[in-house]
Every structure is written in C-alpha cells, then in structure tokens.
Design a protein around this nucleic acid. Structure first.
Lengths: 126, 126
DNA sequence: TGCGGTACCCACCTTTTGGTAAGTGAGGAG
DNA sequence: CTCCTCACTTACCAAAAGGTGGGTACCGCA
C-alpha cells in the first residue's frame, strides 16, 4: 500500500522523528543525499551495500511522502530520476548529527564492527 | 531470543545510534527515565500507555545490555527493581533532543499549514 | 542478436517485531 | 481464603518489515 497507516498519534517529538527515520536504510539515504546533494536511483543503490531495489524504492517513496526528499522524474528514453533533500530533510539531517556523533563515539568506545568498505572496494591484491 | 545478533557492522554513527533506539518504546523509556531519574518497573509500565510487560522487560534488558540503563535489584520480599540512565544513556538523550525538536516542529507544521498541492487530509469537520 | 543498464512494479516468502495470556511465589488487604 | 501487587518468564500468534526473483519498455553497445 502506498499509504500505510503509519503516523499514528505521537507521544512526543522523538516518536514522530523516529517514525520517519525508522527503516533499515533511511538514515543512510539521508546521509548519501546530504553528502552528494543530488543522486540518481542507481547511484543510491550502489551506495548502499546490500539494499534491494524494492526496499530502496519503498523507502524513497515514504520519504517523499513524508516531505524529506524531492523526486524529479525526467521523461527521457533511458529513465532518469533524481533525488535530493528537501528543507525538511536537510533539517532532519542536522537534527540527526548529534545522534551520529553519539553513535560514532559508541562505536569507538565499544570497538564495534564497522561497515565493510563500500566506496572503494577494489582489492589491489587479488 | 534474549540475545539477538544485533549490532551488525555499522555503516555510520547514525546507524549505530538508531540500532540502539529502535524499538517501539525505547525512546519513551529513555524520556521517562530522563524526566524522573529513577523509576521502578511498574512505574514505567504505567507511564507508557499500552506497553505490554513482555516488551517493557525486553526493551529494558536490551537497553541494559547496550549500556543505556542501569538496573538495580533489591532482594526484598515484594520484589523491587529500579531503573535509571547511565551516563551513556543520558548522553544519548541529549543527542536525541534536536531530533525531538525537529519532530515537534514537524507535528506543528503538519497540523497548521497544509501544503497547497500534495496533502490535503480533510480537516475533520464531519 | 543478445546483453546490460535504467527505474521501477508485482507476487511470494521469511524474518523480525510486537501483542496476549498464562504462570511464578510471597506478602498484604479485604 | 481469595484476590491483588511486584517483576518478571514462557508459549503461542499476528502483523509488519524486509528479501527474492520475476517482468516491464526502451536504449546503446558489440
């Protein structure tokens, strides 16, 4: 369903914000879009290791519906769709920054596993 | 299971932080504990409308495991268990504050100003 | 001619999450 | 004597989230 009954009555702002960022890849999408400004579908897909097309579409649609991202479709022969953050999305990203710092701190402190590299895989050795 | 293989390799700090706060009631528990300092199990349960005992226990256990809350058991005849935030938990709450403000802002905005083109969700007039 | 790339949609399946209801054992209220 | 409270645990279920693999319509490349 395009319009799930999310957005139930919220108890506090945290609730509302978490509702909007909950989803396996939403935080990363936000981050990617923030880092690059504008990204095409396939670029996002390549940027998120292991995401399925379905999930990416689904998340992007919800985020569009939630007013976080802007979607531009070019009616060209090879389809082209560009995604970028709206003001609201950018503000959310800002609001997420302290959380990200807390998370990095936590990773450092607990020596947690960090992602397998995604931007420069190309193992030189083999 | 009590010990799910969460804490997979993280891609960024946001990831790690969201992992730790994801759960229907965790944000609220954090908030309650922050607001009151120390709370007993039943107090928390009463504070969260609709939470089941199972979920509350489960969330509290995970949060303890994640080093967010401190759990003190008094070996008394009517059992008594007190929960409070650890330093890490308090810091997380701080980091969550801008997010909460963003959420409140979002709630406000969507109540008053309806966007001219996309959503016009019926002002409930009956 | 066949393949890969583009940006999806769809049906089906598994995993995860959350909810319901019952049981525990001792003490205090009625 | 029975019920209620405390802080859980366990077994069982339902719903949501996420994953898999297919198809679409068109293009350029070899």
């Amino acid at each position: 369903m395009a319009n799930a009954p999310r957005k139930g009555p919220y108890i506090c702002g945290i609730d509302a914000a978490l509702d909007v960022v909950s989803g396996k890849w939403k935080g990363l999408v936000l981050w990617e879009l923030h880092a690059h400004g504008v990204r095409r579908f396939a670029e996002l897909r390549r940027a998120l290791p292991g995401v399925s097309e379905k999930m990416l579409t689904q998340h992007l649609r919800q985020m569009e519906e939630d007013g976080l991202v802007h979607r531009t479709v070019y009616a060209e022969v090879p389809p082209r769709v560009e995604y970028s953050l709206t003001e609201s999305g950018a503000a959310l990203n800002e609001a997420l920054r302290p959380l990200g710092e807390w998370g990095r701190d936590r990773i450092r402190r607990h020596r947690l596993a960090v992602a397998p590299d995604l931007d420069a895989p190309v193992p030189a050795g083999s």
